[in-house]
Design a protein around this nucleic acid. Structure first.
Lengths: 134, 134
DNA sequence: TATTGACCTTCCAGTTACTGGAGGCACTAA
DNA sequence: TTAGTGCCTCCAGTAACTGGAAGGTCAATA
């Protein structure tokens, strides 16, 4: 199958699929005309990558997960370790964003949002003190 | 003051300060020897930018906020609008990450993490069905 | 048969916000 | 004078694509 159908089947942009080939995540065959010829196995791999990316794994983690998937001598401990690290990163990132959100929401709530220049958001950014103490 | 002290005063890496000059966020004077000569006003600007970045505003948003800060004819509505957009982005991102977290945490909890190859995390990534229904 | 138009190819550049490093002056203290 | 530190510029790399140009291929139609 051509790249367009592969894209439709995997919900990945054709550009992204070409990129994944570039970096060696998939190696579809080629037809005589030079077009990529995707097999079911390629689709399966791409979908696997797409799902892992959707969970926020980096492309390199996807590569590793794919290797583990294809290596029947893997241990589930290896996989779990990658997933747990990723989970920890997500938790940290969520905590950071919640902190931002809290401060920002406070500032937004303090700002009149009218046609006058006075603005607690700018005051806060301009001052050593107030951003954190929101 | 030289860049090192400016970096210490603003908690920004010297490299980052040079970058901010490159993209026109600050324009410190130069000494006869070519060294950047930071004034208090530059430090103030840099600290402003640093705080805005710390709240997750993009560099371009920081540029706009800085302009608004220096424009006494601004309206607080302009500022609030930027902040509110950013807040919405943060909320969306947090929601996405929580969704990832939920799925991932479930998968991790299902995985034995031992020396056997059987792994629900990989099974899930390999299957159309299970990632979302975790 | 010639020609659309959709599809495919490769390659290059741009995105965000820095960060690292090379090569080379400038300044200070011993 | 020499060593060490600090400063300069410029180039390249990061992550994961994305957009676009230039051009070949294929199927259907006039």
């Amino acid at each position: 199958m051509n790249i367009k159908e592969a894209a439709a089947r995997t919900n990945l942009p054709a550009k992204t699929i070409r990129y994944y080939e570039d970096i060696g995540l998939v190696q579809p065959d080629r037809n005589a005309n030079g077009y990529r010829a995707f097999e079911e196995a390629d689709i399966h791999k791409l979908a696997f990558i797409g799902r892992a990316r959707g969970l926020g794994f980096t492309v390199e983690e996807c590569r590793t997960l794919l290797h583990l998937y294809e290596d029947t001598t893997r241990t589930s401990a290896e996989v779990k370790s990658i997933a747990r690290d990723h989970l920890a990163r997500i938790d940290q990132r969520i905590a950071e964003m919640k902190e931002m959100r809290k401060t920002l929401a406070h500032l937004v709530s303090c700002c009149a949002g009218d046609d006058r220049p006075n603005c607690p958001i700018l005051d806060s950014l301009a001052s050593d003190q107030s951003v954190k103490s929101g």
